[in-house]
């Protein structure tokens, strides 16, 4: 039951974020890159304002899987770096916090691009 409730919360919050994104797409005809940037910056703002940790506690993967989580990681890393190492930490903190994700995206992209070719589509 507890599991079910967690997953329900994850589903609802994650779905709501995506739904908001779709609303933006429908209303403003934004391209996918603009949508991703908007939501990442939203994550940065949520992290700085401190709201993100509450959301994360409530819906864990519901907010960390959307790109909002990526933004919050960036901001969190930068803030931690700033408090621990000063200016240098402020500069490199954000990148080091998301380095695993970024590296894996680049590596997987490279490997798959060597193995696969794009296919034409019919819909």
């Amino acid at each position: 039951m507890e599991y079910f409730l967690t997953y329900l919360k994850v589903f609802a919050v994650g779905g709501a974020i995506c739904c908001l994104g779709q609303l933006l797409i429908n209303k403003t005809k934004m391209s996918s890159a603009r949508i991703l940037v908007t939501f990442m910056l939203l994550g940065v703002i949520l992290e700085v304002s401190g709201a993100f940790s509450y959301l994360k506690e409530f819906a864990s993967a519901g907010v960390t899987v959307p790109i909002v989580g990526f933004g919050s990681n960036l901001a969190k890393g930068a803030l931690e770096g700033a408090s621990e190492e000063g200016l240098l930490g402020a500069v490199k903190g954000g990148m080091s916090a998301v380095s695993a994700g970024l590296t894996s995206v680049i590596v997987f992209g490279f490997v798959f691009a060597l193995l696969f070719k794009s296919k034409s589509k019919k819909i």
Partner: peptide, 20 residues
């Protein structure tokens, strides 16, 4: 050609965006 025009004027074929 759909695929070559798509790549030149719009987005890569595998990009998961919605066409308007």
């Amino acid at each position: 050609h759909f695929a070559s025009a798509e790549r030149q004027y719009r987005y890569p074929l595998e990009l998961g965006n919605q066409r308007t």
